[in-house]
């Protein structure tokens, strides 16, 4: 523990009163209310939702702008740096747990509920026999008794390419980090730009894959246990790639403006940690959603 080793800032930086938390709360309230209205066909829904997004963007620019200004101004001491490291680590832990819920659902349906409905395991034989005797389970091609026919997504097309892209992006990002540590700004810029580019290509391919799956394979959110877990896991992962790519783009802009040096670049590192986390989630996803 760093504080036990005597790392105490003489004056731990406590920010001045700020309007951004309140703005963020108003934004999330609008997003929640707007989404609930929209889903229930209340006419105002989309507008409230759009307003929420607009306020959210304003808040993100304002709040992170403040943080960057404080950082550049040198307000953050060693102890604040440790706080950021702890904070980011626990945030990523919470993200791991969020994905765990969906992976848990996948494993549960794959191992328990779909087989029980499909051919009646143990004392669930009656479930199969009485409810859906005609349902023959075949993951991933038939994952629910009353589901329109669909085709599953093959692992060895776009998904395999995407795996290679994300793994490469992890390497380019580390290469950029080395550049930062060695104070080679060109290497840093090049590596970071390559990473963002690879992330963007990943997202484009993912969008194409969805188009292909939805339109040509008939694979939809409603396509049984497989369709639900496929779209929710890859969808939430894709959203995280998008967020990670935005974070890295922000870092690229900051690098181009001359921010960060060899010793002070936690903003960069946090984005990198996040990117590697998203990378690892993809690997697990590739194995359990696409391959197995």
């Amino acid at each position: 523990m760093n504080v036990e080793n005597g790392v105490h800032d003489a004056h731990y930086f406590v920010p001045a009163p700020s309007k951004w938390p309140l703005v963020g709360s108003i934004s999330l309230f609008c997003l929640a209310l707007g989404a609930a209205f929209w889903m229930n066909s209340v006419a105002a829904g989309p507008y409230i939702l759009a307003l929420g997004f607009a306020i959210l963007l304003w808040m993100l620019f304002g709040w992170f702008g403040d943080v960057i200004r404080e950082s550049v101004h040198g307000d953050y001491g060693k102890q604040v740096d440790y706080s950021f490291r702890w904070g980011m680590s626990w945030f990523i832990f919470s993200e791991v747990m969020f994905f765990s819920a969906f992976f848990g659902a996948l494993f549960y349906m794959r191992v328990l509920s779909v087989p029980e409905l499909g051919f009646g395991v143990g004392y669930h034989a009656e479930t199969h026999g009485l409810l859906w005797p005609m349902f023959n389970e075949a993951w991933p091609m038939a994952s629910g008794p009353k589901v329109d026919a669909y085709e599953a997504m093959s692992a060895w097309g776009i998904p395999a390419i995407n795996t290679a892209l994300l793994l490469t992006s992890g390497a380019t990002l580390t290469w950029a980090h080395w550049g930062l540590i060695e104070n080679k700004r060109g290497k840093l810029k090049l590596g970071l730009a390559a990473t963002v580019l690879l992330g963007a290509i990943f997202l484009c391919l993912q969008a194409y894959e969805y188009h292909h799956a939805w339109g040509e394979l008939g694979l939809k959110l409603s396509s049984g246990a497989y369709g639900a877990t496929f779209y929710m896991l890859t969808g939430f992962h894709g959203m995280h790639v998008l967020v990670g790519a935005i974070m890295l783009t922000t870092m690229l802009v900051r690098v181009l403006r001359g921010h960060f040096d060899q010793h002070h670049h936690f903003g960069f590192e946090a984005a990198a940690w996040y990117w590697h986390f998203v990378d690892v989630v993809w690997l697990i996803l590739f194995v359990f959603v696409y391959c197995v």
Partner: peptide, 26 residues
Amino acid sequence: PVLAGAVTMLLTDRHFGTHFFKAVGG
């Protein structure tokens, strides 16, 4: 986050056609 995941699945089951908690879809 696990609770957030659970209620998100409720939401998609309610409005977006997923079958997390419906036996008709596995």
